[in-house]
């Protein structure tokens, strides 16, 4: 017996999805995190690698700040805290890796089994990823600041008010939505492309270059900064801008850009998902 997923959706999944609550997704995150905590050695090694990386970059920047005649408005400590934020938020929380899960499941056909379950498959994959990487991310949030305090000292945060901090919390949530929608859409491209990896690699590397992996956004050329700030890559890397004292005048427009990109990318992701659903056939029996 064959049934198209759209019909399945109408018959059962749709009703059941409505029934599934936020609690279900929290349970998925919790279950994934529990699975991840089983490998403590890997967790420790992951955090250690980040500390070594940040230490190495701190040493390079120390020489750069000491030996170069060029002056910059971004203090040394803030530059390093910004890079560390990139490592923790973008590399270790790793929302971009949702592409790999989606791509693999689409290519192996596992997605067929996923769509008949009474939960939203896309949210399920994101929650699974957040749970899997969540512990390492939390460990980094504790260890990296301690390491940075030792390596470079505390950042200058005198520019932030309570309202600005709240805006950054909102930006972080929007960054997660933008990244999820962007990389889910690329992953779903596997329904049409034989190999979606090249598309993913391009987006991933654009995030690396313009997200502030090695050079904080605040140290990019002025015109590039403006361009990046309002692009999806800039929205994804927005939490790293927390340490940029010059960002405050642009904070409002940045939030607006983040809202606009979130809405657009979620809409696009949903459209691509609907098209993808009409392409697959679930073999029953």
């Amino acid at each position: 017996m064959k049934a198209t997923p759209s019909k399945l959706h109408e018959r059962g999944v749709g009703q059941l999805t409505r029934r599934s609550s936020l609690r279900t997704y929290l349970d998925i995150i919790r279950a994934s995190a529990r699975e991840d905590s089983a490998n403590a050695r890997r967790l420790v090694a992951g955090v250690a690698v980040s500390v070594i990386r940040v230490g190495l970059i701190a040493a390079i920047y120390k020489v750069a700040y000491a030996h170069s005649a060029a002056r910059t408005s971004l203090p040394y400590a803030n530059a390093l805290w910004s890079i560390a934020a990139y490592f923790a938020f973008i590399l270790n929380l790793g929302i971009r890796n949702v592409f790999k899960i989606v791509d693999r499941e689409v290519r192996t056909g596992v997605v067929e089994v996923g769509v008949i379950k009474p939960i939203d498959w896309r949210l399920y994959k994101i929650c699974e990823l957040l749970g899997k990487n969540g512990l390492e991310f939390l460990a980094q949030l504790i260890v990296l600041p301690i390491a940075l305090l030792i390596f470079v000292g505390a950042p200058d945060m005198s520019h932030l008010t309570f309202l600005d901090s709240a805006a950054f919390v909102l930006l972080t949530l929007l960054a997660m939505i933008v990244a999820s929608a962007m990389f889910l859409t690329v992953g779903l491209a596997a329904f049409w492309l034989q190999d979606a990896q090249p598309v993913y690699r391009i987006l991933d590397k654009l995030t690396l270059v313009f997200g502030g992996a090695f050079v904080p956004i605040a140290l990019l050329p002025h015109a590039t900064q403006i361009l990046v700030r309002y692009s999806p890559f800039g929205v994804y890397a927005a939490p790293t801008q927390l340490f940029n004292p010059q960002i405050l005048p642009s904070l409002g427009p940045m939030v607006l850009a983040a809202v606009a990109w979130s809405a657009f990318l979620v809409f696009l992701c949903d459209r691509v998902w609907q098209r993808a659903m009409s392409k697959i056939e679930v073999n029953g029996g």
């Binding site: 030996h67 060029a70 690396l208 270059v209 992996a213 050079v215 050329p221």
Partner: peptide, 16 residues
């Protein structure tokens, strides 16, 4: 991409 990412450092600081 890796080269470009690091080039921004030298673009900002010149010779290090």
């Amino acid at each position: 991409a890796l080269i470009i990412a690091w080039l921004f450092l030298f673009n900002r600081f010149g010779t290090i």
